[in-house]
Design a protein around this nucleic acid. Sequence first.
DNA 1: GAGAAGAGCAAACAGTCGTTCACCGAGTGA
DNA 2: TCACTCGGTGAACGACTGTTTGCTCTTCTC
Lengths: 211, 211
Amino acid sequence: MTEDELPPRRARKLATRQALLDGALRLLEQQSLTSLGLREVTREAGIAPAAFYRHFGDLGELGVALVEESFGSLRALIRDIRTPEADTEDVIRRSVDLVAAHVRAHRAHFCFLARERYGGVASVRAAIAGELDSFVRELADDLAAQPESEGWSAPELSVLARLYVNVLMLTAASMIEAGPDDPAAEQSILTEALMQLRMITVGRRYWTENR
Amino acid sequence: MTEDELPPRRARKLATRQALLDGALRLLEQQSLTSLGLREVTREAGIAPAAFYRHFGDLGELGVALVEESFGSLRALIRDIRTPEADTEDVIRRSVDLVAAHVRAHRAHFCFLARERYGGVASVRAAIAGELDSFVRELADDLAAQPESEGWSAPELSVLARLYVNVLMLTAASMIEAGPDDPAAEQSILTEALMQLRMITVGRRYWTENR
DNA sequence: GAGAAGAGCAAACAGTCGTTCACCGAGTGA
DNA sequence: TCACTCGGTGAACGACTGTTTGCTCTTCTC
């Protein structure tokens, strides 16, 4: 096994930086980024207020860092969803299951993304939009590689991909809003998402002959 | 023509209440409800901080009132969209146009709704969700009355209606994010929304034979 | 026209806020 | 080993916060 691989100096700095991110994320489950206080965050992280400036110049910077962290864990989910060959129904079903599992495992991250996607900090909104765009592009590429996409133009595939992504993001947001302790509500949200994805996919199948 | 119809006492009270709502809405274009300050709002409305309590016990109460006001203007839009008989393509096109016009006319209201739909104040989130639910129910009823809905169950119609509503709400949110002075971006958002609605509608047409 | 009601005000309350500053002490690199 | 870098500290700053209190002055009610 390898050693820590990091000089203790940098390691400690990264650790308290992470403490700041974790503390902020915890607080952001109940409020929005614009209402977050610098002292509040440092209190939650267990450091002095002034130490904040050693890591971020601004609470907005911390917000952007949180976006990167959130999408970092999302990328694993995306990689799991992207399986080139499989029955369409299976892909849909597995996508919904994976999103559900991921929301359960990273509730705070999704809560943050849902809240700040149209929140009050422009730089954070832009960061989220950019990450979602690259997600949409990846999905559009995957869709393009499938035989069902014969006769589809690139813009059409992009629009379809965004529709899929939006449904999944709204599903995640609904799960967050339902709370973690309501399996019945969660189940109905997931079956609804399943049906919406199926409807869209039926539309996709007959699109070229009805466009 | 009729007189003011209102005792001057109540009229004045309603006027300053409206000034509070207007001022808050103006501030909420750049921040979120949880970060809104009571003094900030009263300053914007031109009254003393203490006078706030004559109208609302709480900033959350003001938020709920803003939800009602926002959906009040939305209801006019919904009534316009609901036209029993028309070609499906026409309905889609007209819906997108109406949403676009309504966003342009009531930008601040949509900005508020997009931001607080998953924002930090639970009572406001609940109020928005409730209004959206009743919107979904109305649309589902309209859809049920159409001949294309033969063979559809009530839950299926509800799911479809929610999908339509979500697309329209996300379209509005995208328009807000693009800003009022970018006609090119606005046009591409609207054509994307149009295509998404068409794809869903194709799915609807072939749903019963592919479900 | 007298008295009650109530919308709005200024002032004061104890807190909290973001930011700056000099300073400490442990890790770093020669 | 010695100078140095630098993450973290505690104190202090003025500004701003939500809420309460007692008070005006207009409007309503009888």
